[in-house]
Design a protein around this nucleic acid. Structure first.
Length: 805
RNA sequence: GCAGGCAUGGCGGAAUUGGCAGACGCGCUGGAUUUAGGAUCCAGUAGGGAAACUUGUGCAGGUUCAAGUCCUGUUGCCUGCACCA
C-alpha cells in the first residue's frame, strides 16, 4: 500500500502557509517558547542531507511545544555575508548581492520542502541594509563604550583568502575555512575587547543548561588561571622584569628566568648585553617559526628545548635576594601572561627539562616528590620547605601568604590571567558590513552619526582582494573621502569590513522584532521572547559564534538594550551525517546525497522520519538510503490505518500500549531521543496490525503523536478521520501513569542468576507471592530438588532469583 | 603529552541507570502472491549444538544473588587542549 505523498505534502504546506499557521505574535496570555536553530550561510552548493538534521529535530520540539499550548517562536534567516559568495561572484563576474539573492531563493525552496513549522514572516537577512544598520549600530555602541579599538598588531593572515583571521578561525596553523597556510603579519586592525567579558562569559555558563562538552570547551578556551604577577629587579638597570605565575608559593625555588624572544626588554638592555649578537641570531631563528611550528615541532620530536643565556644581565629573586640568570627561549610565549617567566625547575616539568639541559640549579621548595628524578607538580599534598617564612605550610596556604607578602612589599600582586584574546574584528574584503567609522587626521577615529546609518556598502567595480592587505573599498575614492563628523575637516572612511560573525552575533534578537526601524528590537518584544529557550547548533561554533554572540548579548544587556544577560538557556549539538561509506559527505568526494532527491522519491515525511531515526542525535552516523526506504514503508503502513479505522474498528485491548507510547514519545522529544520515540511509534503500529483493528479515536491519538515527526501524513489522515481544524494547531495528548502499567506481567525466574523459567502473574504481587509462584513452576521445582536455598531475591514484577548451594 | 568520551549481531542502533542483552529499522534466508522483476504479506535471523543446554556487549581481572552498566589494568577509535608559566 502506498500513498500519494507528493499531492498530500503540497496540499498541507500550502494550507499552513495560507492560514499563517505558524506565525506568532506576543501573546501575554500564553507561555512563550523560543526555539532557535543556527541560520544557514546560503552557499551556492545548496543543502545536503546533513543540514536538515538539526532543523527537523528542532521542528519536532517546536511542534510538540505548540501542541502543548506554548506560544512558540521558531524563526529562520540568512547569514549571508561572507567569503564564498564573494569569491564565487569574482569568479563568475557577478555582484555578490545577486549571488546571495539567488542562493537564498534556492535554500528557501529546499527548506520549505521539509515541512518545517517556521514563522517565515520573521525572516532576516544579514546583508539587508535594514538589518545591518543595526549591526553597525551595535558596533558604534561598542566603540563608544571603549570596547572597539584599532591597534597595530601581528595578525593571522590567510595567504589564500588574503584576509586576516580571528584566533578562533585558525585551526592547527591553517585557515579554518580554506585550509591554506596562515602567516603572521603586522597590520592595524579593529579589535573588540571580548577579554573585558572573560569572567562574565565564564560565570554565566554555570547556570546554563548547555551540554557538558560545550561548557568544557568554552572554559578551556577562556583559560582562566589564578596566580600572581611578580616584579623581578635587574642588576644593571632600573627596569624590572614582570612575570605571571600560578605558583607564587614556589618563588623561593625560582633559580633562573626565561623571556620570550619577542620580549621588548632585550632592546632596552641592548648595550648591557655582552652576547647581543648571539641573542639576536636566536630571535631571528625564532621569528621564522610560526607559533604553530614552535609548539608542534617540540611535540613530534623529543621535547628538546632551546635557549640562550643573556650574558651581562642578572635578575634578583625578590624573596631571597639571590642573583639568577636570565635566558631567552621560545618555550615562553610573548602572547601569554607577560612574556616572561620565573623558572622553578623543581616544580614545573618544562623548567625542569630546561634546567637539566643547561645544568641550572634545581631547588626543592615543596616536599613530597623526588626532584632528583622529575619535577614535583602536585599542589594537593606538598608541604613547603627551603622557603623561609613559608616553611611548613601547605601549598594552598603558602599561596595566600606569599601573595599577601608581595602586595604588602609592593613587589607583586594577585592576578587572574585568561588565555582568551581580544577579537580581531576587521576584514579586508568587500562582502561585509562597512565599519561606520571615519579617520580624521586631527580627531583620530570618529564614529559616524547614528542618523547616517546604515552606512551602505557601495558598488565597486572590482571585488578582488589585494595582496597589500587593503580592502577593495579603499579603491573607491569618492566613497572614502568624507568630512569628519566632529571637526568637519576632510577625512577618510574606514575601508575594512566586519567579519561574518558580526551579523550572526545578534540575529536571535532581531527575530523578536524583525521589522523595527528604530532599534535592533523593541524592549517589549525582547522582554517577551528572550532568552532563547533552546538553541541547537554545531560544535564548531562553540568558541566562535556562541562565545561572540554571548559577549554581544551581555554587552547589550549592560547598556540596557536587553533585559536578560544570557541569550540562550539551553544549548544542544547534533552529530554529523556521514556518507554511506562512513567518510565525510562532500562535493569533492562525490558522495553527497541531496535531500531534494530523497524527498521527491520518498516524500518529506519519510525523509524527516529517517533523519531522526538514523541514530543518536548527538553522534555522527552514516547515511543509508536503504534505511530511508524502511521509513517510507512505515509511512505507507500508517496510511493504511485509516481504512482499518473506517471499516468499523472495535476498541482494542491496546489502552496500556497507547498510554506507554504517549509517555515515551512525550519524554523522548524533550530529551532529543527522536530515534527511540519513532521506534515506539513503529512498535505501536506493528501491534495494531497484529490485532488488525482500531477505532477512529485511537487513530487520532496516534496521529497526534506522529504529527511532530511526519506532519503532512498526520494532517491528511486527521482530515480523513474527520478531525477538526489543523492537527498541527491541535492539542497534545496526555497519559495516565497508572494506565501505563500492564496488569499481567512476565516474571523471569532465575536460579543462581540464570533464567530458568518465566511465569505470568498479576502485576504488583508481593515478593512472598512471587517466590511462591516461582517455586510452583514444574521446571523450577525439579531444579531445586535436593538443593539448599541460600537466598531469595525479588525485583517486583520482573525477576525472582533463587540462590542455591 | 594532558583531559574527556566511546567500544553491543552482517549494518544503523536499543537497553527505565546494577535486574530477562540485541527493542526498532536495514540487510539476509525461506515461503505466499506475481508471467517476471518490483512492491506487499507470513515465518526466521548473535554464535555453537539434533536437543537439553551452552557461550556471548574490544581485551584481562575484580566486586555482586545479579554487570553492556560499577572498580582496576589494557588496547583501539573519536573529541577537546596543546610549551598557557
Amino acid at each position: 500500500m502506498t500513498y500519494d505523498f507528493r499531492e498530500i505534502e503540497k496540499k498541507w504546506q500550502k494550507k499552513w502557509t495560507d492560514e499563517k499557521a505558524f506565525n506568532v505574535t506576543e501573546d501575554k496570555s500564553k507561555q512563550k517558547y523560543y526555539v532557535l536553530i543556527e541560520f544557514p550561510y546560503p552557499s551556492g552548493q545548496g543543502l545536503h542531507v546533513g543540514h536538515p538534521r538539526p532543523y527537523v529535530a528542532m521542528d519536532i520540539v517546536s511542534r510538540k511545544k505548540r501542541m502543548q499550548g506554548y506560544n512558540v517562536l521558531f524563526p529562520m534567516g540568512w547569514d549571508a555575508f561572507g567569503l564564498p559568495t564573494e569569491n564565487y561572484a569574482i569568479k563568475n563576474k557577478l555582484h555578490p548581492k545577486t549571488v546571495t539573492k539567488d542562493n537564498i531563493i534556492k535554500f528557501k525552496r529546499q527548506l520549505q520542502a521539509f515541512g518545517l513549522s517556521l514563522d517565515w514572516s520573521r525572516e532576516v537577512d544579514t546583508t539587508d541594509p535594514g538589518y545591518y544598520k543595526w549591526t553597525q549600530w551595535i558596533f558604534l555602541q561598542l566603540f563608544k563604550n571603549g570596547l572597539a579599538y584599532k591597534k597595530e598588531m601581528a595578525v593571522n593572515w590567510c595567504t589564500s583568502c588574503k584576509c586576516v583571521l580571528a584566533n578562533e578561525e585558525v585551526v592547527n596553523g591553517v585557515c579554518e575555512r580554506c585550509g591554506s597556510e596562515v602567516v603572521r603579519r603586522e597590520k592595524s586592525q579593529w579589535m573588540l575587547k571580548i577579554t573585558a567579558y572573560a569572567q562574565k562569559l565564564l560565570d554565566g555558563l554555570e547556570n546554563l543548561d548547555f551540554i557538558e562538552r560545550v561548557k568544557t570547551q568554552t572554559t578551556n578556551w577562556i583559560g582562566r588561571s589564578e596566580g600572581a604577577e611578580v616584579d623581578f629587579n635587574i642588576t644593571c638597570s632600573s627596569e624590572n622584569l614582570k612575570v605571571f605565575t600560578t605558583r607564587p608559593d614556589t618563588l623561593f625555588g625560582a633559580t633562573y628566568m626565561v623571556i620570550a624572544p619577542e620580549h621588548p626588554i632585550i632592546n632596552d638592555l641592548k648595550n648591557k648585553i655582552s652576547n647581543y649578537a648571539e641573542i639576536e641570531a636566536y630571535r631571528e631563528e625564532a621569528s621564522k617559526k610560526s607559533d604553530f611550528e614552535r609548539s608542534e615541532l617540540s611535540n613530534t620530536t623529543e621535547k628538546e628545548k632551546t635557549g640562550i643565556e643573556i650574558k651581562g644581565v642578572k635578575a634578583i629573586n625578590p624573596v631571597n635576594g639571590k642573583e639568577i640568570p636570565v635566558f631567552v627561549s621560545d618555550y615562553v610565549l610573548i602572547s601569554y601572561g607577560t612574556g616572561a617567566i620565573m623558572a622553578v625547575p623543581g616544580h614545573d616539568t618544562r623548567d625542569y627539562e630546561f634546567a637539566k639541559k643547561f645544568d641550572l640549579p634545581i631547588v626543592e621548595v615543596v616536599k613530597g616528590g623526588d626532584i632528583a628524578k622529575e619535577a614535583f607538580t602536585d599542589v594537593e599534598t606538598g608541604i613547603m620547605v627551603n622557603s623561609g617564612f613559608l616553611d611548613g605550610l601547605e601549598v594552598a596556604d603558602a599561596k595566600k601568604k606569599i601573595t599577601q607578602f608581595l602586595e604588602d612589599k609592593k613587589i607583586g600582586v594577585g592576578k587572574i590571567n585568561y588565555k582568551l584574546r581580544d577579537w580581531v574584528f576587521s576584514r579586508q574584503r568587500y562582502w561585509g558590513e562597512p565599519i561606520p567609522v571615519v579617520i580624521c587626521p586631527d580627531c583620530g577615529f570618529v564614529a559616524i552619526d547614528e542618523s547616517e546609518l546604515p552606512l551602505l556598502l557601495p558598488d565597486v567595480e572590482s571585488y578582488e582582494p589585494t595582496d597589500t592587505g587593503e580592502s577593495p573599498l579603499s579603491k573607491m575614492t569618492e566613497w572614502v573621502k568624507c568630512k569628519c563628523p566632529k571637526c568637519g575637516k576632510a577625512a577618510e572612511r574606514e575601508t575594512d569590513t566586519m567579519p561574518q560573525w558580526a551579523g550572526s552575533s545578534w540575529y536571535f534578537m532581531r527575530y523578536c522584532d524583525p521589522k523595527n526601524k528604530d532599534c535592533p528590537a523593541s524592549k517589549a518584544a525582547l522582554d517577551y521572547w528572550m532568552p532563547v529557550d533552546w538553541y541547537n547548533g554545531g560544535m564548531e561554533h562553540t568558541t566562535l559564534h556562541l562565545l561572540y554572540s554571548r559577549f554581544w548579548a551581555l554587552f547589550l544587556h549592560d547598556i540596557g538594550v536587553m533585559s536578560c544577560p544570557e541569550p540562550y538557556l539551553k544549548r544542544t549539538s547534533h552529530g554529523m551525517i556521514l556518507a554511506e561509506d562512513g567518510g565525510k559527505m562532500s562535493k569533492s568526494r562525490g558522495n553527497v546525497v541531496n535531500p531534494d532527491d530523497m524527498i521527491s522519491e520518498y516524500g518529506a515525511d519519510a525523509f524527516r522520519l529517517y533523519e531522526m531515526f538514523i541514530g543518536d542525535f548527538e553522534k555522527s552516523t552514516p547515511w543509508a538510503t536503504n534505511g530511508m526506504k524502511g521509513c517510507k514503508r512505515f509511512a505507507d503502513r500508517v496510511f493504511g490505518l485509516i481504512d482499518m479505522a473506517k471499516s468499523g474498528g472495535v476498541t482494542l485491548n491496546l489502552e496500556v500500549k497507547f498510554h506507554q507510547t504517549i509517555k515515551k514519545v512525550t519524554n523522548d522529544i524533550d530529551n532529543l531521543k527522536m530515534n527511540t520515540a519513532i521506534a515506539s511509534l513503529m512498535t505501536l503500529v506493528n501491534d495494531i496490525y497484529d490485532i488488525g483493528s482500531l477505532t477512529i479515536d485511537e487513530l487520532k491519538i496516534f496521529l497526534t503523536l506522529l504529527c511532530p515527526f511526519a506532519p503532512h501524513i498526520s494532517e491528511e489522515l486527521w482530515y480523513l478521520a474527520g478531525g477538526k481544524g489543523l492537527l498541527s494547531l491541535g492539542n497534545w495528548v496526555s497519559y495516565d501513569e497508572a494506565k501505563t502499567k500492564e496488569n499481567a506481567v512476565e516474571i523471569a525466574v532465575q536460579i543462581n542468576g540464570k533464567v530458568r523459567d518465566k511465569i505470568i502473574t498479576e502485576a504488583g504481587i508481593s515478593n512472598k507471592q512471587a517466590i511462591i509462584s516461582a517455586k510452583n513452576s514444574e521446571k523450577i521445582k525439579e531444579m531445586l530438588s535436593g538443593r539448599e536455598i541460600v537466598k531469595e531475591i525479588v525485583v517486583p514484577d520482573k525477576i525472582v532469583n533463587i540462590v542455591v548451594k
